[in-house]
């Protein structure tokens, strides 16, 4: 019997497979297809201090081996989350993580404070990397001083595990990772989407209403893998790998590069059962390689 459990700061995950925010709704959308409790954890759709309608349609453009999105943090705000969505999450016994975003430091703090009071939310993932909102979002995650400011402010009001989700749209993601570690982050997750663009040549128009959007899917995996490897070597806190993970091999590669856990994102749209297939695949891999603890894969790359 192999051990699939991993420890992520104070979180005990039953396995290293989680779902990326914005690709898994609030879990219930997937209840018909998988046992959501079988996952290591789920990171639910981003919550902001106020209701947001998100960006205008069209918000999505398919690209080779991936997609661009410009949803823009559509959600009903933290108070709605607490009243209406949180009670529905109580049925899950695995690790539930809230993704927190906003336009101002005060907004991030307000959401974090309210999430702190919810017993069943084991951690928050601070989203300082959404490329699809005009103010805030990625702006916080692309410079060290602003990343430090928002992480510090949230750290002061949030007692549980604080994960900071990093943007790949920077010159050095390692510098940002070190900055948020210094500011009190318990873990970092990376990468959020890569800023991209799609054009309809026939119409001479951008495909997305916002012109640019966030690229995800297998197309970004090599970039994500490289960044996870760089960051994992630089920081002491755990790293969660995200970026185009679709298969068991993808998940294993991220762990070898130094990730303590991984998030499956866009693949959920193509195969709602991708996560549970990856979990089964990791178990097979461990048996095949005579490894009895998945933790032994973390950073075990032979270079």
């Amino acid at each position: 019997m192999v051990n699939l459990g991993v420890k992520l700061h104070k979180l005990n995950l039953r396995n290293p497979v989680m779902t990326a925010s914005g690709t898994f709704g609030y879990g219930e959308e997937f209840d018909d297809f998988i046992d959501v409790n079988a996952l290591g954890g789920i990171i639910v759709k981003a919550t902001t201090s106020k209701h947001r309608e998100g960006n205008a349609y069209p918000r999505m453009a398919e690209t080779p081996m991936g997609m661009l999105n410009a949803v823009g943090l559509q959600n009903k705000g933290v108070d709605y989350f607490v009243d209406k969505i949180y009670p529905k999450l109580l049925k899950y016994s695995n690790c539930i993580v809230a993704n927190v975003s906003d336009s101002t430091v005060e907004g991030y703090v307000e959401v974090a404070e309210k999430m702190n009071r919810l017993d069943h939310i084991a951690a928050i993932e601070l989203n300082i990397s959404c490329p699809n909102v005009k103010e805030g979002g990625m702006a916080f995650g692309t410079s060290c001083p602003s990343a430090i400011a928002v992480t510090r402010a949230v750290r002061e009001v949030y007692d549980k595990t604080l994960i900071v989700k990093l943007s790949p749209n920077v010159t050095s993601i390692t510098e940002i990772a070190l900055a948020v570690e210094e500011a009190g982050a318990d873990a970092v997750s990376l990468i959020n989407t890569l800023l991209g663009m799609a054009i309809d040549a026939e119409k001479r128009k951008p495909v997305l209403s916002t012109i640019t959007g966030g690229l995800s899917g297998p197309a970004i995996k090599p970039v994500a893998l490289r960044m996870v490897w760089q960051v994992a070597r630089a920081v002491k806190i755990p790293v969660i790998g995200i970026g185009g993970i679709t298969t068991t091999a993808d998940a294993i590669e991220f762990m070898l590069a130094g990730a303590s856990a991984i998030q499956v994102g866009t693949a959920n749209f193509v195969d709602p059962q991708a996560t549970v297939k990856i979990i089964a695949g990791i178990e097979d891999y461990l048996v095949r390689h005579r490894i009895n603890d998945v933790g032994q894969l973390i950073g075990a790359l032979n270079t």
């Binding site: 914005g22 690709t23 997937f30 069209p58 999505m60 453009a61 999105n69 749209f269 709602p272």
Partner: peptide, 12 residues
């Protein structure tokens, strides 16, 4: 234009 078809991605 849709991605997930089940209300998870909010693209459509």
């Amino acid at each position: 234009t849709m991605a997930c078809g089940i209300g998870a991605c909010l693209c459509c």
